[in-house]
Design a protein around this nucleic acid. Structure first.
Length: 551
RNA sequence: GCCCUCGUAGCUCAGGGGAUAGAGCAUUGGCUUCCGGAGCCAUGAGCGCAGGUUCGAAUCCUGCCGAGGGCGCCA
């Protein structure tokens, strides 16, 4: 019986690499040779953290030792004996190490095959996965109220959501991105009233918007317009401009006002009533969300007859299923309590619990002049994302957002970011790309051209720096799939920094165009550089960063 | 009080069952021949605390401590 490899392993692109298939098969055969039946799902074939532990490693012996009633190392030794008796040309040496790992040291051929994979696949096909095949995702993010410029905290959701969408798409998910524009309701009315007050030199309304931008925009506002509608449009245009400058794009800007005018609220309410989920008491209308695990029931229609924000939100989320089977909201931590009620409402309307997902991102702390800034509408303090972008440039800003996990609180100190902009890791990565472009320019200058791939000899790539580069490239397919699975674009950031590190090492130690480099080796290295370029290009694109030819 | 997230090097963060826990910044010291030194090499220092599960825990579970957020007929 063949060992069952861990499910997540089976999902991984690794298994599509011939080498893992070879190893898994060999392991399975060796086990049955020894008469060992394995039913554990804990068996892995993994990439060891340390080079001395080989190219691949399996923990089989450790996992099955108890049920086999034997010591792990003894088991591993037997396993290795059997494996050694089987023909597997890629396996160079086998060893038992540590508590009982079976380590596979492979010939360099598998890495040389990576070069061919990358180059023949190219930017469009290498590390493109089909795990999402046939599934569609509707991804909503940012959705800041159109009552002012986007602040630097909102930029995090923009960078995150946009990159996640790119990752989803590369994994074969049809992905539709949306921004929900709350262009009606109390906040927009207060905002409109604030604009009017500023224009007329009157006193701000209670709870009005005191930001400096309100004063500026009030001056732009024509006389005969609805201040609410004009203000929302003005703010939205501002937000759109900021996001666009960060290379963040949306497929759809959903207007709450249009949604409400379409009667969608009534439709949603009616459906909920028909389902028997709605109660009227205490003068209000309630939704029994506690039935689906919410802390308590929620009000749909207030006792003053006005619907709460919850109603249009339900209607909106219902419609999103027209544009995706899996609906995902990216929310700030301050909205996490909102998730159970929305999930409840959608289940009442017949959607599977698993078809709605909320990604809760930790909020951003904004710091200026060494002091934490509370985003306050009353005092009008904020750090605009535009200000950040103007200070450090879109790539630095975007990479700063994408460097860390969305689960950790992030501090954006505009002073620190500005002063250390030139130390931002994005330059380390982009510099590597620029160096590659530079090699291309220099090659042209020297009249060196790349021969067809079929004519080069990749086995000449034996320098440890060259092999490291290929190893890094070989992990991209996995990395992308894991980034998609974990909704973690920062894993791409981590990967591309690693790629940059090994490329700079290669560049330092392995001259390509220098006159003392023998021509066959030069050809192989030229293609290696090309494969690195493809890797950078894919990674930078997923992160939404530019790939500069020169810096 | 209840719920969510986090606590890793001096600082900012990766690593989220596997062997010796990694980067960047900061420190210190090296790298002059032709592809870009925004680079390369070396350098010290760390998993909040206490239990538990496991062959194996930074990783999973429980408790405690600490930080942030949430518990409206606000959005």
């Amino acid at each position: 019986m063949a060992p069952k490899l861990r499910d997540s392993n089976a999902d991984l692109r690794e298994l599509k690499l011939v080498i893992t298939e070879v190893l898994a098969t060999a392991l399975a055969d060796a086990l049955s040779e020894l008469g060992i039946v394995v039913a554990s799902s804990e068996i892995h074939l993994e990439r060891p953290a340390h080079r001395e532990h080989g190219d691949w490693s399996s923990n089989v012996a450790l996992v099955i030792s108890k049920q086999a009633g034997r010591k792990p190392r003894d088991l591993a030794v037997d396993l290795v004996k059997v494996l050694e008796s089987m023909p597997a040309e890629q396996i160079q040496t086998l060893e038992v190490a540590g508590p009982g790992f079976v380590n596979f040291h492979l010939s360099n051929q598998w890495l040389h095959d990576v070069l061919t994979d990358v180059v023949s696949g190219g930017e469009s096909a290498y590390a493109r996965s089909e795990t999402g095949n046939g599934q569609s995702i509707n991804l909503e993010f940012v959705s800041a109220n159109p009552t002012g410029p986007l602040h630097a905290g909102g930029g995090r959701w923009g960078a995150y959501g946009d990159s996640l969408a790119r990752i989803f798409r590369r994994c074969g998910y049809e992905t539709f991105t949306e921004y929900y524009v709350n262009d009606r309701g109390l906040q927009t009315e207060l905002f409109g009233a604030s604009l009017l007050a500023r224009r007329d030199g009157a006193e701000l309304p209670e709870g009005g918007y005191a930001g400096e931008y309100v004063v500026e925009w009030a001056l732009e506002m024509p006389d005969n317009v609805d201040p609410v509608a004009w203000g929302c449009e003005r703010a939205l245009a501002d937000v759109q401009e900021s996001l666009a400058s960060m290379n963040v794009a949306f497929d759809h800007w959903a207007s709450e006002k249009a949604l409400v005018n379409s009667g969608a609220m009534e439709t949603a309410l009616e459906a909920l009533r028909e389902g028997g989920w709605v109660d009227d008491h205490e003068g209000a209308t309630w939704l029994r969300t506690s039935t689906f695990g919410d802390e308590k029931d929620r009000v749909l229609i207030k006792s003053d007859g006005e619907p709460t924000y919850f109603v249009p939100d339900i209607a909106y989320h219902t419609q999103k299923f027209d544009r995706g089977n899996l609906v995902i909201d990216v929310l700030g931590a301050d909205h996490h309590g909102y998730v159970p009620r929305m999930s409840a409402a959608l289940q009442m309307l017949g959607h599977e619990a698993s078809s709605y997902e909320a990604i809760i991102g930790q909020n951003v702390t904004l710091v200026r002049d060494g002091k934490e800034i509370n985003l306050s509408k009353r005092t009008g303090t904020m750090v605009e994302v535009r200000e950040l972008i103007e200070a450090v440039g879109p790539d630095v800003a975007r990479f700063a957002y994408l460097l860390q996990s969305i689960d950790t609180r992030q501090t954006i100190d505009i002073d620190v970011l500005s002063s250390q902009a030139n130390e931002n890791p994005v330059y380390y990565v982009q510099y590597a790309y620029a160096r590659i472009a530079s090699v291309g320019r220099e090659a042209e200058k020297r009249g060196v051209t790349r021969n067809p791939l079929s004519e080069i000899d990749p086995t000449l790539l034996t320098h440890e720096r060259e092999l490291e580069l290929l190893r890094a490239l070989s992990t991209l397919p996995d990395t992308i799939e894991i980034a998609a699975r974990d909704r973690a674009p920062h894993k791409i950031s981590t990967w591309i920094r690693e790629l940059a590190a090994v490329f700079h090492g290669f560049y330092h130690d392995c001259p390509v165009l220098r006159s003392d480099v023998e021509s066959d080796l030069q050809q192989a290295r030229l293609w290696l550089v090309e494969s690195a370029r493809i890797g950078f290009s894919i990674g930078l694109d997923l992160l939404g960063l530019t790939a500069p030819e020169e810096m």
